[in-house]
Design a protein around this nucleic acid. Structure first.
Lengths: 254, 254
DNA sequence: ATAATAGTGTCTTTTAGACAATATGTA
DNA sequence: TACATATTGTCTAAAAGACACTATTAT
Protein backbone atom coordinates (compact mmCIF):
# COMPACT_ATOMS: atom_id res chain seq x y z
CA UNK A 1 0.00 0.00 0.00
CA UNK A 2 2.06 2.89 -1.31
CA UNK A 3 0.03 5.87 -0.15
CA UNK A 4 -0.37 4.89 3.44
CA UNK A 5 -0.60 7.87 5.82
CA UNK A 6 2.73 9.13 7.02
CA UNK A 7 3.54 8.26 10.60
CA UNK A 8 6.41 9.91 12.51
CA UNK A 9 9.51 7.75 12.58
CA UNK A 10 9.96 8.27 16.31
CA UNK A 11 6.68 6.54 17.25
CA UNK A 12 6.71 3.70 19.76
CA UNK A 13 6.89 0.09 18.67
CA UNK A 14 3.32 -0.47 19.86
CA UNK A 15 1.85 2.40 17.91
CA UNK A 16 3.79 1.35 14.85
CA UNK A 17 2.41 -2.16 14.98
CA UNK A 18 -1.16 -0.87 15.21
CA UNK A 19 -0.77 1.08 12.01
CA UNK A 20 1.29 -1.39 10.06
CA UNK A 21 -0.61 -4.62 10.55
CA UNK A 22 -2.47 -5.96 7.54
CA UNK A 23 -5.68 -4.05 7.03
CA UNK A 24 -8.90 -5.74 5.92
CA UNK A 25 -10.60 -4.61 2.73
CA UNK A 26 -13.47 -2.25 3.46
CA UNK A 27 -16.56 -2.04 1.28
CA UNK A 28 -20.04 -0.56 1.47
CA UNK A 29 -23.02 -2.32 -0.08
CA UNK A 30 -26.55 -1.01 -0.43
CA UNK A 31 -29.77 -3.01 -0.49
CA UNK A 32 -32.09 -0.84 -2.53
CA UNK A 33 -35.77 -1.65 -2.30
CA UNK A 34 -38.68 -0.29 -4.26
CA UNK A 35 -42.22 -1.31 -4.99
CA UNK A 36 -43.34 -2.30 -8.47
CA UNK A 37 -46.16 -4.42 -9.83
CA UNK A 38 -47.48 -5.14 -6.36
CA UNK A 39 -44.16 -6.67 -5.32
CA UNK A 40 -41.11 -5.73 -3.33
CA UNK A 41 -38.14 -5.35 -5.69
CA UNK A 42 -34.41 -5.15 -5.06
CA UNK A 43 -31.76 -3.63 -7.31
CA UNK A 44 -28.86 -5.89 -8.30
CA UNK A 45 -25.83 -5.31 -10.49
CA UNK A 46 -23.85 -7.79 -12.52
CA UNK A 47 -20.22 -8.26 -11.48
CA UNK A 48 -17.66 -7.32 -14.15
CA UNK A 49 -16.08 -10.21 -16.00
CA UNK A 50 -12.52 -8.84 -16.07
CA UNK A 51 -9.87 -11.35 -15.23
CA UNK A 52 -9.01 -11.17 -11.55
CA UNK A 53 -12.44 -9.95 -10.45
CA UNK A 54 -14.20 -12.25 -8.01
CA UNK A 55 -17.56 -13.78 -8.97
CA UNK A 56 -17.40 -12.58 -12.61
CA UNK A 57 -20.78 -12.10 -14.26
CA UNK A 58 -22.78 -12.96 -11.13
CA UNK A 59 -25.47 -10.72 -9.68
CA UNK A 60 -24.56 -8.76 -6.56
CA UNK A 61 -25.71 -5.93 -4.36
CA UNK A 62 -24.49 -2.55 -5.62
CA UNK A 63 -21.48 -1.43 -3.66
CA UNK A 64 -17.73 -1.37 -3.60
CA UNK A 65 -14.65 -0.18 -1.83
CA UNK A 66 -14.64 2.83 0.41
CA UNK A 67 -12.66 5.57 -1.30
CA UNK A 68 -10.78 7.39 1.44
CA UNK A 69 -10.21 10.32 -0.88
CA UNK A 70 -13.85 10.70 -1.97
CA UNK A 71 -15.91 9.60 1.01
CA UNK A 72 -16.10 11.63 4.20
CA UNK A 73 -17.80 8.86 6.12
CA UNK A 74 -19.65 5.58 5.68
CA UNK A 75 -23.03 7.13 5.02
CA UNK A 76 -21.58 9.43 2.38
CA UNK A 77 -20.05 6.41 0.73
CA UNK A 78 -23.40 4.59 0.73
CA UNK A 79 -25.09 7.64 -0.77
CA UNK A 80 -22.44 7.77 -3.48
CA UNK A 81 -23.01 4.12 -4.40
CA UNK A 82 -26.74 4.75 -4.46
CA UNK A 83 -26.37 7.83 -6.64
CA UNK A 84 -24.15 6.00 -9.09
CA UNK A 85 -26.86 3.42 -9.77
CA UNK A 86 -30.09 5.35 -9.39
CA UNK A 87 -29.46 9.10 -9.58
CA UNK A 88 -31.44 9.42 -6.36
CA UNK A 89 -29.82 11.41 -3.61
CA UNK A 90 -32.11 11.79 -0.64
CA UNK A 91 -33.68 8.44 0.02
CA UNK A 92 -34.60 6.80 3.26
CA UNK A 93 -31.29 5.19 4.17
CA UNK A 94 -30.61 3.09 7.24
CA UNK A 95 -27.62 1.10 8.41
CA UNK A 96 -28.35 -2.62 8.33
CA UNK A 97 -25.17 -4.11 9.74
CA UNK A 98 -21.68 -5.31 8.93
CA UNK A 99 -20.42 -8.61 7.71
CA UNK A 100 -16.72 -9.28 7.91
CA UNK A 101 -14.39 -12.24 7.90
CA UNK A 102 -11.57 -14.08 6.26
CA UNK A 103 -13.55 -16.12 3.77
CA UNK A 104 -16.22 -13.86 2.30
CA UNK A 105 -13.98 -12.34 -0.38
CA UNK A 106 -11.30 -14.38 -2.19
CA UNK A 107 -9.06 -11.28 -2.25
CA UNK A 108 -8.64 -11.41 1.51
CA UNK A 109 -10.09 -10.55 4.91
CA UNK A 110 -12.87 -8.11 4.15
CA UNK A 111 -15.66 -6.27 5.89
CA UNK A 112 -18.73 -4.73 4.32
CA UNK A 113 -20.98 -2.10 5.81
CA UNK A 114 -24.49 -2.67 4.52
CA UNK A 115 -27.15 0.02 4.26
CA UNK A 116 -30.67 -0.37 3.04
CA UNK A 117 -32.59 2.22 1.10
CA UNK A 118 -36.30 2.55 0.40
CA UNK A 119 -37.27 4.40 -2.79
CA UNK A 120 -40.56 5.24 -4.45
CA UNK A 121 -40.61 3.84 -7.96
CA UNK A 122 -41.39 7.16 -9.60
CA UNK A 123 -38.24 8.73 -8.15
CA UNK A 124 -36.31 6.39 -10.46
CA UNK A 125 -38.08 7.08 -13.74
CA UNK A 126 -36.43 10.33 -14.94
CA UNK A 127 -32.93 8.80 -15.29
CA UNK A 128 -33.32 5.07 -14.94
CA UNK A 129 -29.77 4.22 -13.89
CA UNK A 130 -26.75 5.34 -15.88
CA UNK A 131 -25.57 2.17 -17.67
CA UNK A 132 -28.71 0.12 -17.45
CA UNK A 133 -27.37 -3.06 -19.05
CA UNK A 134 -25.79 -4.52 -15.95
CA UNK A 135 -28.42 -3.24 -13.48
CA UNK A 136 -31.79 -4.89 -12.88
CA UNK A 137 -34.71 -5.00 -10.50
CA UNK A 138 -35.65 -8.40 -9.09
CA UNK A 139 -38.83 -9.30 -7.23
CA UNK A 140 -38.08 -10.57 -3.73
CA UNK A 141 -39.96 -13.61 -2.48
CA UNK A 142 -41.22 -14.25 1.04
CA UNK A 143 -37.92 -15.79 2.13
CA UNK A 144 -35.84 -12.89 0.82
CA UNK A 145 -34.57 -14.82 -2.22
CA UNK A 146 -34.38 -13.58 -5.76
CA UNK A 147 -34.93 -15.38 -9.11
CA UNK A 148 -31.54 -14.89 -10.74
CA UNK A 149 -30.98 -18.50 -11.70
CA UNK A 150 -27.63 -18.40 -9.89
CA UNK A 151 -26.61 -17.68 -6.35
CA UNK A 152 -25.55 -14.11 -5.65
CA UNK A 153 -21.91 -13.05 -5.41
CA UNK A 154 -20.06 -13.05 -2.08
CA UNK A 155 -22.42 -13.57 0.88
CA UNK A 156 -24.97 -11.27 -0.70
CA UNK A 157 -27.79 -13.80 -0.72
CA UNK A 158 -27.43 -14.01 3.03
CA UNK A 159 -27.26 -10.24 3.40
CA UNK A 160 -30.32 -9.75 1.22
CA UNK A 161 -32.28 -12.22 3.31
CA UNK A 162 -31.23 -10.33 6.44
CA UNK A 163 -32.35 -7.05 4.90
CA UNK A 164 -35.75 -8.47 4.00
CA UNK A 165 -36.13 -9.91 7.46
CA UNK A 166 -35.24 -6.57 9.02
CA UNK A 167 -37.68 -4.76 6.78
CA UNK A 168 -40.45 -7.25 7.58
CA UNK A 169 -39.88 -7.09 11.28
CA UNK A 170 -39.81 -3.29 11.38
CA UNK A 171 -42.91 -3.07 9.23
CA UNK A 172 -44.82 -4.75 12.04
CA UNK A 173 -44.48 -1.71 14.24
CA UNK A 174 -43.20 1.24 12.18
CA UNK A 175 -44.23 3.38 9.23
CA UNK A 176 -41.31 2.20 7.07
CA UNK A 177 -43.40 1.11 4.05
CA UNK A 178 -44.48 4.71 3.51
CA UNK A 179 -41.00 5.44 2.16
CA UNK A 180 -41.73 3.09 -0.75
CA UNK A 181 -44.60 5.29 -1.99
CA UNK A 182 -44.67 8.49 -3.96
CA UNK A 183 -46.34 11.40 -2.26
CA UNK A 184 -49.11 12.10 -1.97
CA UNK A 185 -50.41 8.59 -1.35
CA UNK A 186 -53.77 7.34 -0.15
CA UNK A 187 -54.54 5.12 2.82
CA UNK A 188 -55.67 2.21 0.64
CA UNK A 189 -52.34 2.42 -1.20
CA UNK A 190 -50.45 2.51 2.07
CA UNK A 191 -52.35 -0.48 3.38
CA UNK A 192 -51.58 -2.41 0.20
CA UNK A 193 -47.84 -1.80 0.72
CA UNK A 194 -48.06 -3.13 4.25
CA UNK A 195 -49.87 -6.20 3.00
CA UNK A 196 -47.31 -6.80 0.26
CA UNK A 197 -44.36 -6.55 2.61
CA UNK A 198 -46.00 -8.55 5.38
CA UNK A 199 -47.45 -11.16 3.02
CA UNK A 200 -50.80 -11.05 4.79
CA UNK A 201 -53.94 -8.93 4.74
CA UNK A 202 -54.86 -6.37 7.36
CA UNK A 203 -58.18 -5.07 8.60
CA UNK A 204 -59.13 -1.84 6.89
CA UNK A 205 -60.73 -0.11 9.82
CA UNK A 206 -57.99 -0.92 12.33
CA UNK A 207 -55.33 0.08 9.84
CA UNK A 208 -56.87 3.48 9.21
CA UNK A 209 -57.39 4.19 12.86
CA UNK A 210 -53.81 3.36 13.68
CA UNK A 211 -52.29 5.30 10.82
CA UNK A 212 -54.34 8.43 11.40
CA UNK A 213 -53.89 8.31 15.17
CA UNK A 214 -50.09 8.05 15.03
CA UNK A 215 -48.63 11.40 16.02
CA UNK A 216 -46.22 12.95 13.55
CA UNK A 217 -47.00 10.50 10.78
CA UNK A 218 -49.42 11.82 8.13
CA UNK A 219 -50.75 15.15 6.98
CA UNK A 220 -53.61 15.58 4.54
CA UNK A 221 -52.80 16.61 0.98
CA UNK A 222 -56.19 16.92 -0.67
CA UNK A 223 -58.41 14.43 -2.51
CA UNK A 224 -56.65 12.38 -5.15
CA UNK A 225 -57.99 11.48 -8.58
CA UNK A 226 -56.74 7.90 -8.71
CA UNK A 227 -59.49 6.69 -11.02
CA UNK A 228 -61.35 5.14 -8.11
CA UNK A 229 -65.13 5.71 -8.05
CA UNK A 230 -64.81 7.76 -4.91
CA UNK A 231 -61.77 10.02 -4.70
CA UNK A 232 -59.60 9.06 -1.72
CA UNK A 233 -57.79 11.51 0.54
CA UNK A 234 -54.09 11.95 -0.18
CA UNK A 235 -51.46 12.17 2.54
CA UNK A 236 -47.85 13.26 2.91
CA UNK A 237 -45.28 12.28 5.49
CA UNK A 238 -44.69 14.83 8.20
CA UNK A 239 -41.12 13.57 8.57
CA UNK A 240 -39.41 12.18 5.47
CA UNK A 241 -36.27 11.07 7.29
CA UNK A 242 -37.50 8.99 10.16
CA UNK A 243 -40.24 6.39 10.47
CA UNK A 244 -42.89 6.53 13.17
CA UNK A 245 -43.05 3.77 15.77
CA UNK A 246 -46.42 2.30 16.73
CA UNK A 247 -46.94 1.12 20.29
CA UNK A 248 -48.21 -2.29 19.14
CA UNK A 249 -47.55 -4.73 16.35
CA UNK A 250 -50.16 -5.62 13.75
CA UNK A 251 -51.98 -8.79 14.58
CA UNK A 252 -54.74 -9.27 12.05
CA UNK A 253 -54.86 -12.65 10.34
CA UNK A 254 -58.06 -12.06 8.39
CA UNK B 1 1.88 -2.55 4.25
CA UNK B 2 4.39 -5.36 3.96
CA UNK B 3 2.27 -8.46 4.46
CA UNK B 4 -0.56 -7.66 2.08
CA UNK B 5 -2.15 -10.73 0.47
CA UNK B 6 -0.47 -11.92 -2.71
CA UNK B 7 -2.34 -11.14 -5.88
CA UNK B 8 -1.43 -12.70 -9.25
CA UNK B 9 0.72 -10.39 -11.37
CA UNK B 10 -1.46 -10.96 -14.43
CA UNK B 11 -4.56 -9.34 -12.91
CA UNK B 12 -6.36 -6.57 -14.80
CA UNK B 13 -5.71 -2.91 -14.12
CA UNK B 14 -9.17 -2.55 -12.64
CA UNK B 15 -8.79 -5.43 -10.22
CA UNK B 16 -5.36 -4.21 -9.25
CA UNK B 17 -6.68 -0.78 -8.39
CA UNK B 18 -9.40 -2.23 -6.22
CA UNK B 19 -6.87 -4.08 -4.11
CA UNK B 20 -4.20 -1.46 -3.98
CA UNK B 21 -6.15 1.65 -3.00
CA UNK B 22 -5.57 2.96 0.49
CA UNK B 23 -7.46 0.87 3.00
CA UNK B 24 -9.16 2.35 6.05
CA UNK B 25 -8.17 1.21 9.50
CA UNK B 26 -10.60 -1.38 10.86
CA UNK B 27 -11.36 -1.75 14.55
CA UNK B 28 -13.93 -3.46 16.73
CA UNK B 29 -15.19 -1.86 19.94
CA UNK B 30 -17.43 -3.39 22.56
CA UNK B 31 -19.88 -1.61 24.83
CA UNK B 32 -20.03 -3.89 27.86
CA UNK B 33 -22.95 -3.33 30.20
CA UNK B 34 -23.64 -4.82 33.58
CA UNK B 35 -25.81 -3.99 36.56
CA UNK B 36 -24.35 -2.98 39.88
CA UNK B 37 -25.63 -0.99 42.84
CA UNK B 38 -29.00 -0.47 41.19
CA UNK B 39 -27.39 1.23 38.21
CA UNK B 40 -26.44 0.43 34.67
CA UNK B 41 -22.65 0.32 34.37
CA UNK B 42 -20.34 0.33 31.38
CA UNK B 43 -16.76 -0.93 31.20
CA UNK B 44 -14.14 1.56 30.01
CA UNK B 45 -10.37 1.25 29.56
CA UNK B 46 -7.72 3.90 29.76
CA UNK B 47 -5.81 4.58 26.54
CA UNK B 48 -2.08 3.89 26.76
CA UNK B 49 0.13 6.94 27.14
CA UNK B 50 2.87 5.82 24.74
CA UNK B 51 4.05 8.48 22.40
CA UNK B 52 2.22 8.26 19.09
CA UNK B 53 -0.94 6.77 20.57
CA UNK B 54 -4.05 8.87 20.02
CA UNK B 55 -5.96 10.19 23.06
CA UNK B 56 -3.29 9.11 25.58
CA UNK B 57 -4.63 8.47 29.07
CA UNK B 58 -8.25 9.09 28.15
CA UNK B 59 -11.05 6.64 28.84
CA UNK B 60 -12.36 4.66 25.88
CA UNK B 61 -14.49 1.68 24.98
CA UNK B 62 -12.50 -1.56 25.01
CA UNK B 63 -11.55 -2.54 21.50
CA UNK B 64 -8.87 -2.35 18.91
CA UNK B 65 -7.72 -3.39 15.48
CA UNK B 66 -9.04 -6.46 13.76
CA UNK B 67 -6.24 -9.00 13.59
CA UNK B 68 -6.62 -10.75 10.28
CA UNK B 69 -4.42 -13.57 11.50
CA UNK B 70 -6.30 -14.18 14.75
CA UNK B 71 -9.91 -13.30 14.00
CA UNK B 72 -12.07 -15.43 11.73
CA UNK B 73 -14.81 -12.82 11.56
CA UNK B 74 -16.09 -9.66 13.23
CA UNK B 75 -18.00 -11.42 15.97
CA UNK B 76 -14.97 -13.54 16.84
CA UNK B 77 -12.96 -10.37 17.09
CA UNK B 78 -15.52 -8.79 19.42
CA UNK B 79 -15.53 -11.92 21.60
CA UNK B 80 -11.74 -11.79 21.77
CA UNK B 81 -11.79 -8.15 22.92
CA UNK B 82 -14.42 -9.02 25.50
CA UNK B 83 -12.47 -12.02 26.76
CA UNK B 84 -9.30 -9.96 27.10
CA UNK B 85 -11.00 -7.54 29.50
CA UNK B 86 -13.49 -9.70 31.37
CA UNK B 87 -12.64 -13.41 30.99
CA UNK B 88 -16.26 -13.95 29.97
CA UNK B 89 -16.82 -15.92 26.82
CA UNK B 90 -20.47 -16.56 26.19
CA UNK B 91 -22.29 -13.31 26.84
CA UNK B 92 -25.28 -11.84 25.12
CA UNK B 93 -23.57 -10.03 22.25
CA UNK B 94 -25.33 -8.00 19.58
CA UNK B 95 -24.07 -5.85 16.74
CA UNK B 96 -24.82 -2.19 17.37
CA UNK B 97 -23.55 -0.53 14.20
CA UNK B 98 -20.52 0.95 12.48
CA UNK B 99 -19.00 4.36 12.61
CA UNK B 100 -16.48 5.30 9.97
CA UNK B 101 -14.97 8.39 8.47
CA UNK B 102 -11.92 10.45 7.83
CA UNK B 103 -11.82 12.44 11.04
CA UNK B 104 -12.62 10.04 13.87
CA UNK B 105 -9.06 8.76 14.28
CA UNK B 106 -6.03 11.02 13.84
CA UNK B 107 -4.14 8.11 12.32
CA UNK B 108 -6.36 8.13 9.24
CA UNK B 109 -9.68 7.08 7.72
CA UNK B 110 -11.02 4.48 10.11
CA UNK B 111 -14.11 2.42 10.67
CA UNK B 112 -15.18 0.71 13.85
CA UNK B 113 -17.66 -2.11 14.23
CA UNK B 114 -19.40 -1.74 17.56
CA UNK B 115 -20.97 -4.59 19.51
CA UNK B 116 -22.76 -4.42 22.78
CA UNK B 117 -22.65 -7.08 25.47
CA UNK B 118 -24.87 -7.63 28.48
CA UNK B 119 -23.26 -9.43 31.43
CA UNK B 120 -24.50 -10.44 34.87
CA UNK B 121 -22.25 -8.92 37.50
CA UNK B 122 -21.49 -12.24 39.17
CA UNK B 123 -20.05 -13.63 35.96
CA UNK B 124 -17.24 -11.12 36.40
CA UNK B 125 -16.29 -11.84 40.00
CA UNK B 126 -14.07 -14.93 39.69
CA UNK B 127 -11.37 -13.16 37.59
CA UNK B 128 -12.08 -9.49 37.70
CA UNK B 129 -10.27 -8.45 34.53
CA UNK B 130 -6.66 -9.27 33.86
CA UNK B 131 -4.79 -6.01 34.47
CA UNK B 132 -7.38 -4.17 36.49
CA UNK B 133 -5.55 -0.88 36.83
CA UNK B 134 -6.60 0.62 33.51
CA UNK B 135 -10.09 -0.91 33.47
CA UNK B 136 -13.09 0.49 35.34
CA UNK B 137 -16.85 0.35 35.57
CA UNK B 138 -18.73 3.63 35.28
CA UNK B 139 -22.38 4.24 36.07
CA UNK B 140 -24.30 5.46 33.03
CA UNK B 141 -26.75 8.32 33.44
CA UNK B 142 -30.08 8.78 31.72
CA UNK B 143 -28.51 10.49 28.70
CA UNK B 144 -25.90 7.78 28.20
CA UNK B 145 -23.06 9.86 29.63
CA UNK B 146 -20.43 8.77 32.08
CA UNK B 147 -18.69 10.62 34.96
CA UNK B 148 -15.06 10.42 33.85
CA UNK B 149 -14.29 14.08 34.23
CA UNK B 150 -13.04 14.16 30.65
CA UNK B 151 -14.63 13.41 27.33
CA UNK B 152 -14.08 9.90 26.02
CA UNK B 153 -11.50 9.09 23.35
CA UNK B 154 -12.42 9.12 19.64
CA UNK B 155 -16.19 9.38 19.10
CA UNK B 156 -16.80 6.95 21.93
CA UNK B 157 -19.05 9.29 23.91
CA UNK B 158 -21.35 9.41 20.93
CA UNK B 159 -21.21 5.65 20.44
CA UNK B 160 -21.92 5.01 24.11
CA UNK B 161 -24.96 7.27 23.95
CA UNK B 162 -26.17 5.37 20.89
CA UNK B 163 -25.72 2.07 22.72
CA UNK B 164 -27.70 3.27 25.72
CA UNK B 165 -30.43 4.57 23.46
CA UNK B 166 -30.59 1.25 21.63
CA UNK B 167 -30.73 -0.65 24.90
CA UNK B 168 -33.48 1.62 26.23
CA UNK B 169 -35.58 1.38 23.12
CA UNK B 170 -35.32 -2.41 22.93
CA UNK B 171 -36.11 -2.77 26.60
CA UNK B 172 -39.54 -1.33 25.87
CA UNK B 173 -40.57 -4.42 23.96
CA UNK B 174 -38.02 -7.19 24.56
CA UNK B 175 -36.61 -9.29 27.37
CA UNK B 176 -33.09 -7.86 27.00
CA UNK B 177 -32.66 -6.79 30.67
CA UNK B 178 -32.82 -10.42 31.72
CA UNK B 179 -29.30 -10.87 30.34
CA UNK B 180 -28.03 -8.48 33.00
CA UNK B 181 -29.13 -10.82 35.81
CA UNK B 182 -27.59 -13.95 37.25
CA UNK B 183 -29.76 -17.00 37.11
CA UNK B 184 -31.94 -17.88 38.76
CA UNK B 185 -33.56 -14.50 39.25
CA UNK B 186 -36.92 -13.50 40.69
CA UNK B 187 -39.65 -11.46 39.08
CA UNK B 188 -39.22 -8.54 41.50
CA UNK B 189 -35.51 -8.49 40.58
CA UNK B 190 -36.35 -8.56 36.88
CA UNK B 191 -38.84 -5.75 37.26
CA UNK B 192 -36.25 -3.68 39.09
CA UNK B 193 -33.84 -4.06 36.17
CA UNK B 194 -36.49 -2.87 33.75
CA UNK B 195 -37.16 0.12 35.94
CA UNK B 196 -33.48 0.98 36.23
CA UNK B 197 -32.91 0.84 32.51
CA UNK B 198 -36.13 2.64 31.62
CA UNK B 199 -35.79 5.23 34.39
CA UNK B 200 -39.42 4.86 35.35
CA UNK B 201 -41.51 2.54 37.48
CA UNK B 202 -43.77 -0.19 36.14
CA UNK B 203 -46.95 -1.72 37.48
CA UNK B 204 -46.26 -4.99 39.29
CA UNK B 205 -49.33 -6.86 38.18
CA UNK B 206 -49.09 -5.98 34.50
CA UNK B 207 -45.37 -6.73 34.52
CA UNK B 208 -45.82 -10.20 35.99
CA UNK B 209 -48.66 -11.08 33.67
CA UNK B 210 -46.67 -10.06 30.63
CA UNK B 211 -43.46 -11.79 31.66
CA UNK B 212 -45.12 -15.06 32.60
CA UNK B 213 -47.37 -15.07 29.53
CA UNK B 214 -44.52 -14.55 27.04
CA UNK B 215 -43.88 -17.85 25.29
CA UNK B 216 -40.31 -19.13 25.42
CA UNK B 217 -39.18 -16.63 28.03
CA UNK B 218 -39.05 -18.00 31.59
CA UNK B 219 -39.00 -21.37 33.29
CA UNK B 220 -39.40 -21.89 37.02
CA UNK B 221 -36.32 -22.74 39.05
CA UNK B 222 -37.65 -23.21 42.59
CA UNK B 223 -38.19 -20.82 45.46
CA UNK B 224 -35.24 -18.56 46.25
CA UNK B 225 -33.95 -17.63 49.69
CA UNK B 226 -33.19 -13.99 49.02
CA UNK B 227 -33.71 -12.86 52.59
CA UNK B 228 -37.16 -11.57 51.76
CA UNK B 229 -39.92 -12.33 54.27
CA UNK B 230 -41.71 -14.44 51.70
CA UNK B 231 -39.49 -16.53 49.46
CA UNK B 232 -39.98 -15.57 45.79
CA UNK B 233 -40.02 -17.98 42.85
CA UNK B 234 -36.80 -18.17 40.87
CA UNK B 235 -36.73 -18.29 37.07
CA UNK B 236 -34.27 -19.15 34.33
CA UNK B 237 -34.21 -18.10 30.69
CA UNK B 238 -35.45 -20.71 28.27
CA UNK B 239 -33.16 -19.24 25.60
CA UNK B 240 -29.92 -17.65 26.74
CA UNK B 241 -28.92 -16.41 23.29
CA UNK B 242 -31.93 -14.49 22.05
CA UNK B 243 -34.33 -12.09 23.72
CA UNK B 244 -38.10 -12.50 23.56
CA UNK B 245 -40.18 -9.86 21.79
CA UNK B 246 -43.38 -8.63 23.39
CA UNK B 247 -46.29 -7.60 21.14
CA UNK B 248 -46.68 -4.25 22.89
CA UNK B 249 -44.48 -1.70 24.56
CA UNK B 250 -44.68 -0.87 28.24
CA UNK B 251 -46.79 2.17 28.92
CA UNK B 252 -47.13 2.48 32.65
CA UNK B 253 -46.32 5.85 34.12
CA UNK B 254 -47.30 5.05 37.68
C1' DA C 1 -49.00 -9.88 66.08
C1' DT C 2 -46.58 -6.99 62.91
C1' DA C 3 -43.98 -5.77 59.17
C1' DA C 4 -42.30 -6.55 54.79
C1' DT C 5 -42.16 -8.50 50.60
C1' DA C 6 -44.45 -11.84 47.10
C1' DG C 7 -48.18 -12.70 44.48
C1' DT C 8 -53.39 -12.41 42.92
C1' DG C 9 -57.94 -10.35 41.73
C1' DT C 10 -60.90 -6.89 40.04
C1' DC C 11 -62.25 -3.10 37.56
C1' DT C 12 -61.48 0.23 33.95
C1' DT C 13 -59.49 1.84 29.73
C1' DT C 14 -57.60 1.35 25.41
C1' DT C 15 -57.17 -0.47 21.05
C1' DA C 16 -57.34 -3.91 17.75
C1' DG C 17 -60.16 -7.21 14.99
C1' DA C 18 -64.40 -8.39 12.64
C1' DC C 19 -67.74 -6.84 9.91
C1' DA C 20 -71.72 -4.09 8.82
C1' DA C 21 -73.19 0.31 7.25
C1' DT C 22 -72.74 4.62 4.93
C1' DA C 23 -70.66 8.00 1.57
C1' DT C 24 -69.30 9.42 -2.91
C1' DG C 25 -67.98 9.23 -7.11
C1' DT C 26 -68.03 6.71 -12.26
C1' DA C 27 -70.35 4.14 -15.92
C1' DT D 1 -79.60 3.70 -11.02
C1' DA D 2 -76.16 0.26 -10.23
C1' DC D 3 -71.64 -0.43 -8.81
C1' DA D 4 -67.12 -0.03 -6.96
C1' DT D 5 -64.24 1.94 -3.88
C1' DA D 6 -63.52 5.05 0.28
C1' DT D 7 -64.69 5.92 4.84
C1' DT D 8 -67.11 5.39 9.25
C1' DG D 9 -69.55 3.00 13.00
C1' DT D 10 -70.60 -0.81 16.14
C1' DC D 11 -69.65 -4.68 18.73
C1' DT D 12 -66.43 -7.84 20.82
C1' DA D 13 -62.07 -9.48 22.59
C1' DA D 14 -57.57 -9.02 24.53
C1' DA D 15 -54.37 -6.97 27.28
C1' DA D 16 -52.55 -3.28 30.07
C1' DG D 17 -52.90 0.17 33.96
C1' DA D 18 -54.47 1.20 38.56
C1' DC D 19 -54.94 -0.41 42.83
C1' DA D 20 -56.77 -3.17 46.42
C1' DC D 21 -56.40 -7.49 48.36
C1' DT D 22 -54.44 -12.01 49.99
C1' DA D 23 -50.27 -15.05 51.13
C1' DT D 24 -46.10 -16.19 53.46
C1' DT D 25 -42.48 -15.84 56.54
C1' DA D 26 -38.92 -13.40 59.49
C1' DT D 27 -38.76 -10.80 63.66
Amino acid sequence: MADQPDVPARRSAQAARAIDIARPLVTVDVVIFTLLADALQVLLVQRPSHEGEPFPGQWALPGGFVDVALDDDLRACALRKLREKTAVDSPYLEQLGSWGGRLRDPRGWSVTQVYFALLPWASLQPRKGSNAADVRWFAVDAEGAVPTGQTLAFDHAFILAAAVERLRSKVEYTSLPAFLLDEPFTLPQLQRVYEIVLCRSLDKSAFRTRALAAPGFLEEAGLQATGAPRAPMGYRLVNKNQPVTFPRTFQSRS
